[in-house]
Design a protein around this nucleic acid. Sequence first.
RNA 1: CCGGAGGUGGCAGAGUGGCCAAUUGCUCCAGACUGUAAAUCUGGCGGGAUUUCCCUACGGAGGUUCGAACCCUCCCCUCCGGA
Length: 334
Amino acid sequence: MTLINNTRLVVILGPTSTGKTDLALNLAKKFNGELLSCDSRQVYRGLDIGTGKYPNLNIKYQISNIKKRKAHWEIEGVKISMYDVADPKKQYTVYDFIKDATPIIDDILKRGKLPIIVGGTGLYLKALLEGIPNLGIPVSEKLRMQLQKLSKDELQGKLQQIAPDRWERMNYSDRQNPRRLIRAIEIVIQLTVNKLRTQDDKGRSQNDTYVLKIGLTAPRDILYQRIDKRVIIRVNQGMIDEAQQLHKRGLSLKRMRQLGLEYGVLADFLEGKIKSKEELIKVLQGKIHGFARRQLTWFKKEKNVSWVDTEGRNYFQKVENLICKWYDNPINVA
RNA sequence: CCGGAGGUGGCAGAGUGGCCAAUUGCUCCAGACUGUAAAUCUGGCGGGAUUUCCCUACGGAGGUUCGAACCCUCCCCUCCGGA
């Protein structure tokens, strides 16, 4: 993965429904930019309404202004990469994301455009900007299959046995988390038994890339209101139908559940566990509130973010000013 | 008006004499997170003092009891069925 030196990129981050994509589209037009979605679900083909690929709630963006291309979309002439790059039937991970997104960012830069990364998935963003150790150590399905049969206690015991140092480094919460335990064991076995080696990907910020991070926020109650409203809009946009279509085309309900949030709840709906549209909406709203909270927990720790309250008037203008300033005096704030 | 069921913490819903400030789910709050991350996991959730302490609590008012969310009486309200 070659990186281009002395370049810059903008990151827009924040919890769901703060209008990241809207803002990014606007900025792209002003600063000759191109968007790259840093989102673990928008990568999947066919998950459109439920993942919010259609940017705005209102009529601002007509469907006719949206063009779906092979592995990206074009909205009002602005290219958005990392949409539709994966088959929803197959699992797509951070590793895949980095592999796919890195050359695209390089390409955007090569063409002299400003990459604007729209990030809702903290882990992916972290991987992109800072890199993640052990990212190169692949998943072993067979191993996972075996490990999944073990209880939490057994997993804990196994990890303590084969890699006490690694166990020591885990915090209490992670030690209770079977998924993390399995991954930890997997890494150890891949490194020792299978003799794989770690290849550290340093990520963008450690190279000569100037990164400007803009975080969007809103007061909690406003955020919840927006989420609630958006859920209703999406249901009206045909979210249920979308799920039905996916299922018809062979996406199992089990797999749909793995796709999280809306799709998990929609799977329950299709199966009849959730009986009414009203119930569906209510459950969804609650779940998405929780999701937004988790995003906030993650992003709060993110360093060097210029936070902007989207409730403030002219916040678009504020962001533009930030970028102009940054252009005059580029600091690597990552 | 008669018959039946029921009123519990933000909601749903357990508990039916002491171990109940009250199971559990949801919501909500806080947090973790180095290959499923919209996932997964942890803690909190009446108020206050902040090691087993106090106060206010299970529709309302009385009563029985050493002791009641749980038993009795009356009242209020809700739902279902019949007039």
